[in-house]
Amino acid sequence: MSDTMSPEAAQALLPALRETIREAASLALPYFRTGAQTRARIWSKSGGSPVTEADVAVDAFLKVRLSEIVPEAAWLSEETRDDPVRLGHDLVWIVDPIDGTRAFLSGHPDWSIAVALLSAGEPLVGFVHAPAGEHFYEAVSGGGATRNGQPIAASARAGLAEARVTGPKPMIDRLTRGLAREGVDPAFVRVDRVPSLALRVARVAEGSIDVGLVSTDARDWDLAAADLILREAGGMVCGLDGRPTVYNRPEPIHGELVAVPARLRDAVVAAMA
């Protein structure tokens, strides 16, 4: 379908979208207990990953409300059966109702609600809301990125020495070896891994993390919203070939990725080779 949307039209939707995402958070928060097991019922999906009744409630709420706001948009979500009709749509909602479910169910505050709207295959609107920490990140293509309404920017660090790095240990170890090969002192500040992938990328966007590493098998719903926020903050999510992430493919699954300020991309990609 040829329905597209301009950044100006997307900007006009922001108040309704903010309200919707905050309402979604209000459905999840009663089940969350800081430092303790969730009150929500838990079961396992095929493949063994956990899901809670909070995931399902937030997903159902967002599908109804977001579809009312942009009725012509298709839908892709972690908790909804994939419908290949999305491949023929220019506008697609990409949603993770609770990114970091394991954190949510164990009482760790680093979980989030991630919502993106694609237009012609590119993220046009992105929200990452971390209710437990009261952090609300958002971006519209071409309009910059904010956290709680204040502009954010990726790190201005010029090199990787003493960079703040987070992600899976095997990838950090590979980055360390690659830099040592090139004669760079890999004296990283290792930041604890952020359970929500969307939130991990958003923290690169705000500049509190310099390099976020992402292991294989991330999905569109983990990445699309935060990717736009990082792009608008002066960074990118890319593969180990340096190419930007592509969304709304038949299989919305990704290989190893890095989330970095633009000025650090080449150094990180070279070291990970």
Results as ranks from 00 to 15, higher is better:
176 T>G: 03
244 P>W: 14
130 A>R: 08
207 G>H: 14
105 L>A: 08
76 L>I: 02
255 G>F: 00
6 S>F: 00
270 A>G: 08
158 A>Y: 05
166 T>H: 05
89 H>D: 13
229 I>C: 10
151 P>E: 07
180 A>P: 03
260 V>L: 13
58 V>I: 14
140 V>M: 06
86 R>C: 05
121 G>Y: 02
181 R>G: 15
9 A>M: 04
114 A>N: 10
103 A>T: 10
248 N>E: 04
158 A>R: 11
257 L>H: 06
161 A>Y: 06
220 D>A: 09
175 L>T: 06
238 C>E: 11
42 I>Y: 07
32 F>N: 01
50 P>M: 11
49 S>E: 07
111 W>F: 12
176 T>H: 06
143 G>Y: 09
74 A>I: 09
159 G>C: 08
3 D>A: 14
268 V>H: 10
41 R>T: 12
220 D>P: 12
215 S>E: 15
142 G>F: 08
86 R>T: 07
18 R>H: 07
63 K>W: 14
147 R>C: 12
200 R>L: 04
154 A>R: 03
200 R>V: 00
141 S>A: 09
204 V>L: 04
25 A>F: 07
91 L>S: 11
40 A>F: 11
63 K>T: 06
42 I>A: 12
8 E>Q: 05
123 P>V: 03
220 D>N: 08
119 S>M: 00
41 R>H: 10
11 Q>L: 05
8 E>F: 04
42 I>T: 08
24 A>M: 04
34 T>A: 04
165 V>N: 01
211 V>I: 03
29 L>Q: 08
90 D>Y: 11
148 N>M: 02
221 W>L: 05
272 M>G: 01
211 V>T: 02
246 V>P: 02
220 D>F: 10
92 V>A: 07
73 A>W: 14
172 I>P: 15
198 A>C: 07
115 V>E: 01
168 P>D: 08
150 Q>P: 04
8 E>T: 05
26 S>P: 02
57 A>T: 10
2 S>N: 02
69 I>A: 12
114 A>I: 03
107 G>A: 15
186 P>S: 04
45 K>P: 13
64 V>W: 15
85 V>S: 14
178 G>F: 05
206 E>N: 13
97 P>S: 10
80 T>E: 10
129 H>A: 07
234 G>W: 01
131 P>T: 13
261 P>K: 00
168 P>K: 12
132 A>G: 08
172 I>F: 11
249 R>C: 13
117 L>F: 09
233 A>V: 03
88 G>W: 06
204 V>A: 03
205 A>V: 05
58 V>F: 11
191 V>W: 01
95 V>M: 09
109 P>R: 04
138 E>I: 13
40 A>C: 09
52 T>F: 14
89 H>P: 14
197 L>D: 00
131 P>C: 12
120 A>E: 05
265 R>G: 15
232 E>M: 02
91 L>F: 14
272 M>Y: 01
121 G>T: 03
235 G>L: 04
6 S>C: 00
92 V>L: 07
131 P>M: 12
199 L>F: 01
34 T>E: 05
65 R>T: 15
128 V>Q: 07
18 R>I: 05
187 A>Y: 04
102 R>W: 08
160 L>I: 01
214 V>N: 02
94 I>H: 07
99 D>Q: 06
224 A>I: 14
25 A>I: 08
88 G>V: 06
2 S>K: 01
258 V>M: 08
206 E>Y: 11
80 T>H: 05
248 N>M: 02
11 Q>N: 03
46 S>Q: 10
157 R>D: 00
19 E>T: 10
139 A>L: 11
15 P>Q: 04
